[in-house]
Design a protein around this nucleic acid. Structure first.
Lengths: 141, 141
DNA sequence: TTGCTTGCAAAGCATTTGCAAGAGC
DNA sequence: GCTCTTGCAAATGCTTTGCAAGCAA
């Protein structure tokens, strides 16, 4: 967290209270907030922060590679602060809960050269879908 | 294609020229159109078709499992008619071109029980990212 | 005939942008 | 002080909705 602020300062970022608050709100594991949720949480710490600033800051953090965008089909984009530890997502098809999970092998290995259409493949994004324990038991009843 | 129309009729769908045209536009491999592109192509075949009807029809086809939604981070949703043949996507990070590729093993195997957080996992969605041949050579110059 | 479908236009969200005022370095 | 940032409000882009008219079965 504070290493994030250090890194940003090192990259020439002007440190403002708004940026500090956004970084603070995004700290932790299994955190996948929408821009709006980030804003709501940020307002509690800094009442005058605007939605536009939250969007700007999130966009900048994404292009710096400090956080990752997680697209949730049809719904608002979510932001994952865990960009420095490669991981994948496990999503509940019912309630939308997201958990971080960790790969066992190189996901790129699953794509043989014959299937690459001449592309230079650099990355694989994996999302597992299923039911979380509470949604599964709710259905079982 | 015509099997699609048959299947829809079998499911109690009222067959209209609008629905026929949407199904027709979505035929083929490596087809990943946005709703707007579907509408543009559909208008050529049936000038009075409305955007709302295209959205409705796409939504229905998705819930029937006949086509798949492909979310393109930030941009408009795309629709993939190839829902009955399990496959993954290879996306060019530069121009956004999408190709269908086919898995070599069971992608679910990559997620050990210890990492499932009690979820009942039923599906894995894999997206490979990289540069397509033409974008790669454009960068090389 | 019956009720599912369509088209239109307006509403709804998520996100971006222009520009003047404000704050870091 | 110079420049990068912010906040506001309006604009944009994609998608959904309400409702009367239209059409398949």
């Amino acid at each position: 967290m504070s290493d994030l602020l250090e890194r940003l300062r090192g990259r020439g970022w002007r440190m403002t209270s708004q940026r500090r608050v956004v970084a603070q709100v995004l700290d932790g594991d299994h955190v996948h907030l929408t821009a709006d949720e980030v804003h709501t949480l940020a307002v509690r710490l800094l009442p005058e922060i605007s939605r536009a600033t939250v969007y700007n800051t999130l966009g900048e953090l994404v292009s710096l590679g400090e956080i990752m965008e997680v697209s949730a089909a049809g719904r608002a984009m979510r932001y994952d602060p865990n960009a420095h530890h490669p991981h994948q997502h496990l999503v509940c098809s019912d309630c939308g809960t997201i958990r971080d999970v960790h790969p066992t092998g190189d996901p790129l290995a699953g794509l043989p050269a014959a299937e690459r259409f001449g592309f230079t493949v650099s990355e694989a994004e994996v999302t597992y879908r299923g039911l979380c324990p509470s949604c599964a038991s709710a259905r079982g009843v």
